[in-house]
């Protein structure tokens, strides 16, 4: 049971809300962090913690696009395709990734390292084209940058090109 070892965190989360059910997104986030996706047993566990029925958890999970009901690759590449990023070349980014990894959108590399998705606006329209990889943002992408990011991630599991805390444009030195 995934929450067995997380009792204290669960308690802390529950304490924030007067109504238990409010803790559903935080708990689902925790579950997904643990397992990489939201499993059926996790949903059942959460239902139990929150006094809900499993269908009530399930309906909530499926409303929010950040939850996966099936395992995905170790790195989830989410390229924003909304208009603002599209204006500055997000379709190219998708193309570069597809070419480099040999997968189509929605697919996972055979070694389960990368899953590619296109998503709607991630709130970094001024620094597009951009993508989110797991928790991190990568902005103002170029083909060369994308190549480095993928290489670094595959090799080291991290990449120094991630951005934030965000400020753009940077103030000019006075």
């Amino acid at each position: 049971m995934i929450f067995d070892t997380l009792q204290q965190q669960v308690e802390e989360i529950l304490a924030r809300y007067p109504v238990k059910r409010s803790a559903i997104l935080p708990l689902l986030n925790m579950a997904q962090e643990q397992e990489g996706y939201v499993s059926e047993s996790a949903m059942r566990e959460i239902a139990k913690i929150l006094d809900l029925t499993p269908p009530q958890v399930f309906e909530t999970v499926t409303f929010y696009t950040m939850f996966h009901l099936k395992p995905i690759g170790k790195f989830h590449l989410q390229v924003c395709k909304s208009l603002m990023c599209a204006l500055v070349g997000s379709d190219d980014v998708v193309g570069w990734i597809q070419k480099k990894l040999g997968i189509a959108t929605g697919q996972t590399t055979p070694d389960n390292t990368f899953t590619l998705s296109v998503v709607e606006c991630l709130g970094s329209c001024g620094t597009g084209p951009m993508m989110q990889v797991n928790d991190d943002y990568y902005e103002q992408l170029s083909e060369e940058k994308v190549g480095r990011i993928l290489d670094d991630l595959k090799r080291d599991g991290i990449c120094s090109l991630k951005t934030g805390p965000f400020m753009y444009p940077q103030p000019l030195a006075k």
Partner: peptide, 27 residues
Amino acid sequence: IFVHQGAGAYICGEETALLESLEGKRG
């Protein structure tokens, strides 16, 4: 003050959807 993270739904910016979501429901 508590931070409550959403999970991917633009509509949760609409204030009443936000409240529903914060109550742990579909937004």
